[in-house]
């Protein structure tokens, strides 16, 4: 009695699951020998076994063609978890996809063994299996990338928070040291933090130091001016320090009207200016006689 491809495949999985698992494990361990640091063989075996069980069920109930149906949902969920887990652990994309693709070899070997005589069915089965595993592999990749994007987004948010501290440099003197690349959203955060601190502490002087900033564009310059103007309305004077020579040239070329803002070459100069403005003086002490 001839069997349809689907029947034979799902029989092969049901009957030879342990053998396929062994073969698959060999393949995976060979491919992932370098990643023993990220995941132990035992954990990999547990994961593979769980996947194979779900996969066998899905093959039996859902067919090999359409993986969007309900029977395949548990398999896809499993792969989604696996992808995001591996993305966080630091697996590379190809290492992640290998999980699915390495299943081909043992499955194909088993199918050939079972259906070796019947060439027509063999080719059909192998093709169906190939397409199915490719689909699952691509799905894994897609989710891997998605979870990597999420990680990146989180890191961006963290950076945004980390990168904009408002320091109490001295009594009545606030300072914001800016480092790295300035963009609009970061400038917005800086502006809000600084104005909030001015309102809270009533500081008459705020120094914005941009020594560590590599480049400034028109938008960022406008934000700086806006911050200075708003601070002035709140009763605080803004001093911008650490404008590098290239940034100064860019500002002039862009025609940014920095004339209305106090600028100083270095943070030290800005602090000296702030001391003068708050009627403070730094005095060098005479060395004590022993």
């Amino acid at each position: 009695m001839p069997t349809t491809p689907q029947q034979s495949i799902d029989q092969i999985f049901t009957h030879h699951e342990p053998a396929i698992l062994e073969g698959w494990m060999c393949e995976q361990v060979a491919a992932l020998t370098s990643r023993q640091d990220l995941m132990s063989t035992a954990a990999l075996r547990t994961q593979s076994q769980a996947f194979l069980a779900l996969f066998t069920l899905a093959c039996r109930d859902g067919g090999l063609v359409d993986i969007t149906g309900t029977p395949w949902a548990p398999v896809l969920d499993f792969l989604a978890d696996l992808s995001s887990q591996r993305a966080k652990l630091g697996f590379t994309p190809s290492e992640t996809a290998t999980f699915v693709f390495s299943l081909k070899q043992p499955v194909f070997a088993r199918v050939r063994e079972e259906l070796g005589a019947d060439v027509g069915t063999l080719v059909d089965d192998l093709w169906g299996m190939n397409v199915l595993l490719d689909k699952l592999g691509l799905y894994t990749m897609e989710l891997y990338l998605k979870s990597r994007e999420t990680v990146i987004k989180h890191q961006q948010l963290d950076m945004l928070e980390l990168s904009t501290p408002v320091l109490n440099l001295w009594q009545d003197i606030l300072a914001v040291p800016l480092i790295g690349t300035l963009d609009s959203s970061r400038m917005q955060a800086v502006m809000e933090n600084l104005l909030g601190a001015i309102a809270k502490q009533g500081s008459p002087i705020a120094i914005v130091d941009i020594t560590g900033v590599s480049a400034v564009d028109t938008e960022v310059a406008q934000h700086l001016l806006k911050t200075a103007a708003a601070a002035r309305l709140m009763g605080a004077q803004c001093i911008i320090s650490g404008i590098s020579a290239p940034i100064a040239q860019t500002m002039v070329a862009l025609g940014v009207p920095f004339g209305s803002v106090d600028t100083r070459a270095t943070l030290a100069d800005a602090l000296a200016q702030a001391f003068a403005q708050t009627h403070r003086q730094v005095v060098v002490m005479e060395p004590q006689a022993y």
Binding site: M191, L195, G202, P204, A229, R232, G235
Partner: peptide
């Protein structure tokens, strides 16, 4: 005395110029 940050930003955003107006943060100042 004591203009709020959001109000100050609105003034700047609207392009309003409070020319010649003195501003401080606290009554003591």
């Amino acid at each position: 005395v004591g203009m709020r940050p959001d109000v100050a930003l609105t003034v700047v955003d609207m392009g309003l110029r409070l020319e010649g107006v003195n501003a401080v943060a606290t009554l003591e100042q």
